[in-house]
Design a protein around this nucleic acid. Sequence first.
DNA 1: TTGTATGCGTTATCAT
DNA 2: ATGATAACGCATACAA
Lengths: 360, 360
Amino acid sequence: MDSRAAAPRPTMAQIAERAGTTVPTVSKVLNGGTDVSEATRERVMSAAHALDYRRRPRTRATEPDPRAGRIVDVVVGHIEGSWIGPVLSAIEEESSAAGVDLVLTRARPDGEWIRRLLRRPSLGAILVLVDVSAAGLHTLTTAGIPVVVIDPSTRPPAEVASVGSTNWEGGRMAAEHLIAQGHTRIGVIGGLRSHLFGSARIDGLMTALRAAGVVVPDERVAFCDWDRERARSAAGAMLAARDRPTAFFACSDVMGLGVYEAADDAGLRIPDDLSVLGFDGVQESAWAMPPMTTVRQPIAEMGATAFHMLEQAHRSPRSRAAGSPASRMELETELVLRGSVAPPRPEAAAPEIDLASPTP
Amino acid sequence: MDSRAAAPRPTMAQIAERAGTTVPTVSKVLNGGTDVSEATRERVMSAAHALDYRRRPRTRATEPDPRAGRIVDVVVGHIEGSWIGPVLSAIEEESSAAGVDLVLTRARPDGEWIRRLLRRPSLGAILVLVDVSAAGLHTLTTAGIPVVVIDPSTRPPAEVASVGSTNWEGGRMAAEHLIAQGHTRIGVIGGLRSHLFGSARIDGLMTALRAAGVVVPDERVAFCDWDRERARSAAGAMLAARDRPTAFFACSDVMGLGVYEAADDAGLRIPDDLSVLGFDGVQESAWAMPPMTTVRQPIAEMGATAFHMLEQAHRSPRSRAAGSPASRMELETELVLRGSVAPPRPEAAAPEIDLASPTP
DNA sequence: TTGTATGCGTTATCAT
DNA sequence: ATGATAACGCATACAA
């Protein structure tokens, strides 16, 4: 009976011997200590890898990753807006736990930021709400920089990973909630027609509405470029029409606030006279008066996921070399019920509808 | 002539002796190394403090770190909140123009972030809304890292530069506006009693009110820890009192929104039944319904200024060595008139006042 | 030279 | 016992 046949769990002593150093040094490497040379670090890590070493159950508190000193690039389009806070917060959380510095760059239209990224030896880049061309992305990936795009505005090339949320499903949930509350005259405030995720929300909404026999005529759909003021006037116009909507679906909370204003302009109260359903779940929607019912995107989780995908890509560079298709993660959206959706007033809704179910 | 009379620049050896340890250990402490106990760290730092040690200009180490001087550390307390967006945006604008990367770090209570900063060869650190102890600041400056604090919550030590705005003056402007509109019963929603800049706002307000013969009794002043919900209930309580205020001054826009809610709870309309004046000028205040009159702080400019001060300190390291007093910049606040302040209703204000000018 | 930074092993300690 | 961690200082390398 050869006792080696069992599972002789590798120890730091073995690693140390193989790497030609001592146990404490191995410990330091594995815990991200500062007093180790890069060369020794490498030897220890490869020895550990060769022996397939696994850490014993954590005895100590935090787990600083040995890959200390690296950086991750976070590139944002618009820094304003409350989207960015939770994303940055989440990425920072993950990166700092991994001993990776977060370098924040704003993407200006001149594209200079791409060249700066190329000059930096980073773990990879996370692009948040950046309007970047396929060529730009290609430049980065060609240079060997793993890229993860959060909520891409257009479909990214195959070699670029992306993180999003279930926008279509979110739109569907919104529709079902509005229908369940009894709404049939629904106004839609879209973002930019060309935006991938915005369209998916509307598609999901429309599909579910159609399935329920609710028709949304073209004049009740407006694309407002994610702009609150434009949403306000578009909604205002719809509310001035003869058969005004009893409810609005806005593709973002900020545009939803524009609808709030339009309602105020028209002397309508929310939710008694008009229901509003937003999308995003940012703080503004919770603070609105009344608090806005919305489809929440897991914004923080999306940031954390993006970072993990980058780490993954970094660990197995094969995927890049082999040109394997980059992954796309979709996190779940969630309907958050707050105070801005209620059944339509009977006197307002019932008498005026003549357009129920003109579909098969 | 005894040459010691000049400037016997303290050395690590002296610190080591005083702290009862060796030079390498001192070096490690000053560089954020890991192999030092917390107790030793303290001893070393206090010895360094006692000797008024300043690290020599960063000697280009063995490997001329390509990042040296090319990064600026931005440390934030709470990433949430719309304060952070404009600040980051402005700093990024300046730093990227200067070819400097922005490294974003979140300050967690454990203080680990300080050690990470020590390990990084940065141009300096900008602290935004960070609750940091004097000892923590001292560690950074002793290690030769220039620090600029934006809106410090307590008075920073002499060697730390800071950027703020004219809070006192802003409070004064708020008072004068409310008085000009005819308000005499004014509720005050403060932040945290201990906060430097929050107190200045209230001081300015009170001084101007007093000068106009308006008295604010204690029960019309509440400290709500910058919290919207607490502001809501505090304002609600004041509105329920017999002589309810006709106007509120809130030390932040977010707390101002809490007052909006309290007004709504009480069935009062803004500005007809109640005036509200905020402080900060963040986006939320512009988007409130009605848009909030507020004292705007030049948030973006404060960020840009902080970066410039850092560059300055970096160019002339003499100022550090000579122990010249660090500068404090105060940028101008500005009253932004929007829709939330109007004269008090005559029927509400006139009949009930019995407390006008009980002061000399 | 002197001052500072870094790598690594020794010793002591902690957790099973 | 044994595996792992923590802290310190020696030896050394390097910069002015």
